[in-house]
């Protein structure tokens, strides 16, 4: 930490990522101690910035801050880190912690006006969900300039201070979707894990395998296949993937009950065809929260359109299990 002649504290950083940083990124991607990947808020100097050097605004999340500083490697600049409680720029902006109030407060508390002579801040574009540029100007005198979505485009952007249309767009590539899988997997809700254990005790290994398959179809297979599954709704996409993964189990159930009546054999197969797609669809629907394009209105409509179907499919499957057990062992 250095103190300049104005008496305000400026922390120093570099554009170089250490092995420690990269290890921290892996843990963050795995969802390990999710809120612990944070950077201390405040003003940072990278290189040897002068009074006219650019100021970049970032979030107090290691992945955000490190993406910015590695993109700025070799340049002299200031980084103003807002207190977003260890959350990335876009999510924090949606919550309002990466917001107008915090930015104005951080400009004041760091004494930025005494450190630089210009009055421009380069804010990541996705921060616009929490920051109101004209309000920041009125309240602090600083002009907000929205830079590209990705920090990696900054070197190109800084040549002209103009973003190409491509730099302004958010995408959701296969790589992005795969990156999300570990974090989603590590946070499979506890009730589901308990349910799997109980089911395997009650219904045997194959039943437990079916439940695990249905969950994995929703959490692993679904994000990968997302753009290629027909229909727009995530729930219906989930029903499709779920039905496809349930099919082998249904056939297995039909074949292993060959000594029973045909009604019972079809009934056993139907249990898998009802239960598994409803579980997969539920996880698929929840993936909307991780995407970069689903709207609140759409998700709400999806919930009302499909969650009742999921629930009734599951209830029907469970009822069918009870009926089938009575039919088979009840001596009827």
């Amino acid at each position: 930490m250095v103190f300049n002649d104005t008496g305000y504290s400026i922390k120093t950083t570099t554009g170089k990522l250490t092995y420690g940083n990269r290890f921290d990124h892996i843990l963050a991607r795995l969802g390990y101690k999710r809120s612990k990947h944070s950077v201390e808020p405040g003003l940072y100097a990278i290189g040897t910035p002068a009074q006219d050097s650019p100021v970049f605004v970032s979030a107090s999340y290691t992945l955000s801050f490190d993406a910015l500083r590695s993109a700025l490697s070799g340049t002299d600049a200031y980084i103003l880190v807002l207190d977003t409680k260890g959350i990335n720029v876009w999510c924090a902006a949606g919550k309002g912690t990466f917001g107008t109030d915090e930015l104005v407060h951080r400009i004041e508390s760091t004494g930025l006006k005494n450190i630089i002579t210009h009055r421009t801040l380069i804010v990541p574009q996705l921060g616009a969900t929490g920051i109101s540029a004209h309000k920041v100007r009125t309240r602090s005198g600083f002009r907000v300039e929205y830079g590209p979505v990705h920090a990696s485009d900054l070197p190109e952007y800084m040549k002209t201070r103009k973003a190409t249309p491509g730099m302004r767009r958010v995408r959701f590539t296969l790589r992005d979707r795969i990156t999300l899988i570990p974090v989603e997997l590590f946070f499979v809700p506890l009730p589901f894990i308990i349910a799997v254990v109980i089911i395997s005790l009650l219904g045997g290994l194959m039943t437990a395998a079916a439940v695990v398959t249905a969950i994995l179809a929703g959490i692993v297979l679904f994000p990968i296949l997302l753009p290629w599954i027909p229909t727009k709704d995530f729930s219906t996409k989930g029903f499709i993937i779920g039905a496809l993964s349930a099919f082998p189990f249904a056939i297995w159930a039909f074949n292993t009950t060959h000594d029973a009546s045909l009604l019972l054999r079809y009934g056993s197969a139907l249990v898998y065809m009802l239960a598994m797609p409803s579980i997969t669809a539920f996880f698929a629907l929840n993936f909307t929260g991780s995407t970069t394009f689903t709207s609140v209105t759409g998700v709400r409509r999806e919930i009302y359109a499909h969650v009742p179907t999921m629930a009734s499919m599951l209830v029907t499957a469970l009822t069918l299990v009870v009926v089938l057990v009575i039919l088979r062992y009840g001596g009827m």
Partner: peptide, 20 residues
């Protein structure tokens, strides 16, 4: 609730039990 971002890292709303 807006979302479980208090506990959240990469994505905005990865399903979490603690969130609920």
């Amino acid at each position: 609730v807006t979302c479980g971002c208090d506990d959240d890292a990469g994505s905005c709303c990865a399903p979490t039990t603690t969130q609920l």
